[in-house]
Every structure is written in C-alpha cells, then in structure tokens.
Design a protein around this nucleic acid. Structure first.
Lengths: 132, 132
DNA sequence: CTGAAAATCACCCTAAAGTATGAGCCCAAA
DNA sequence: TTTGGGCTCATACTTTAGGGTGATTTTCAG
C-alpha cells in the first residue's frame, strides 16, 4: 500500500510537472487502480476450502439442540415435511390441517431457526443435528 | 464500461471546474477504479465452483449420477447454493450474474431433477448422492 | 470455420411462500 | 379458576419462486 502511494506520487511528479494532458493522467491512475482492485479482489475473496464437521450416516436426533430451538411438536412435524420438499398445501393435506395453519407453523419454524427461507431452515436444522 | 467513462467525465467536470485539490480528484478516481477492478477480477476469474468444497467426511460425489442428471456446470453451481438455503437473488450476487439467469438455471435444475420446488430438488439431489 | 450446447439476460405472468394480525379452543400448571 | 402455551384457522398483503418465451453471446468440438 505504501509502495502504491509512492508510485502515485512519482507519477504525479513525472506527469504533472511536464504538463501532460489530464486524460493521460487519469488513464494511468485508472489503470493502476483497476489492476490494484483486481489484485485486491482476488486476494481477499478466494474461495476457501472449508472442512466441515463430521456428518453421520446413522442419524441420531440431537434432543438437546431440538429443545434449544424451542420448536413445538407440531412445528417439528412441519419442519420434517418441509425437508422432504413438500409444499405447504401438501403438508396441510398430510397433517389434516389447513394451509393457513401450516403457514403459521412454518413462520414460527423460520423464526426459531433464524432462517429466511424454508431451504435455509432445512439446512440449519441439518447442521444442528435435528434432521437427518 | 461506457457508463464508467461517462461517470468519469461527470466527476471530471464537477471536481475540476471547481478547482478542488488534485489529491481529492485522484482519490476519487482511485477509489472508483479500485472497486471496478475488484468487480472485474471477481467477474472474469470466477472459479468453476465458488461454493465451498464440502469435504464432508463420508460424502463422495457420485459422478455417474451427476452425469445422468444432465446438469451443466452452472446448473450444478446453482443447485449447490440452493441447497445452502440461498434465495435466487443471493445466488445471483454470489455468481455475479443476474437473477434472471439464476431463474433460468434453477428452472432447468428443477426439470432435470424432476422436482416441483427447490426444496424437493435439494432432497432428490441428496438422495442421488450428488449433494452432501 | 461452423453448428450445437451452454450461458447469459429480459419480460410477463401465475403460483407459492412468507409476514402480520387477530381470534377461538383446549389443556395443564399455578 | 385464571393463565399461558400450543394448536388451529382466517384474511390481507408483500415477496420470492417458478413457467414460458425469445434473444444474444460464448464456448468448444468436429
């Protein structure tokens, strides 16, 4: 970074004192910082390989975590069916309740799992170990 | 790109005619092009799969099944991000494409996986062994 | 070089999901 | 017996997802 500023000063001196056109000056600055940006972008956003915690083949429900979420029985039912890719209507049919009720439950599931979408809720649930 | 040049001209006019200090001018140019560079860098060097490589213990991608689905590289990218619970908009941002393109991809994913909803697609994919 | 597949984007429209609010019912614990 | 939590349902509204179509551009193998 320091070197960059120095370089800038240098270019400033070389170009400015010789009264070159503004366009050239701007062009040089723009080019330099474009490449600088590219470098920054690549350096700091390289995807990292993340090793995740072990995932179990034989699923055993993590009761503690389930309690911690504060999910009620019915909400957990809905969550499980969500995870199977069912729509709210299909869930309603399976549980013999209306779609309105399912929506109520699913909203609370999303809240309690701190998710914005059902796909996210399912993902969270799996990471918590409350879904296979 | 054209828009960028226009923006440059605009700033040129606004700042230059008011005789502001050179440092400010250079600073603005530098900032803009740094971000431009970051954007460029990310857009044109995007790795095949930005998604974190889930080196989950006992997950090994079933390449055969993946081929059988006929999913393209990009479609698979989208599927992975779907599975993480991201919205189409969020996926678009991650892949540096528009939400429209994401929709196109996701539609094809749903077709190829024979699913009606993204939650279902994710479920199917996991059962096929093409997602952890 | 050329054609096909892949990737990108746009627009329009419908369906599903999600939010907010209110309300009635049941039941067990205080 | 009151009270609170869980379950149920409704209605109205906003947001997101998904379907269909068409189009341009990349890419890549033949």
């Amino acid at each position: 970074m320091a070197g960059l500023i120095l370089l800038l000063k240098f270019i400033d001196y070389r170009l400015f004192v010789r009264d070159l056109s503004m366009e050239v000056y701007v062009g040089v600055i723009a080019s330099i910082f474009t490449f600088f940006g590219i470098w920054m972008g690549l350096k700091f956003t390289r995807p990292k390989v993340i090793v995740k915690k072990e995932v179990i083949d034989n699923f055993t429900l993590d009761e503690k975590k389930l309690e911690e979420t504060g999910l009620s029985d019915r909400e957990y039912d809905v969550l499980q069916l969500m995870a199977q890719g069912l729509s709210n209507q299909e869930i309603a049919d399976k549980l013999f309740i209306t779609i309105n009720t399912v929506k109520t439950h699913s909203s609370k599931v999303l809240m309690k799992l701190d998710a914005k979408r059902r796909t996210q809720a399912v993902q969270q649930a799996k990471e918590l170990g409350i879904l296979p």
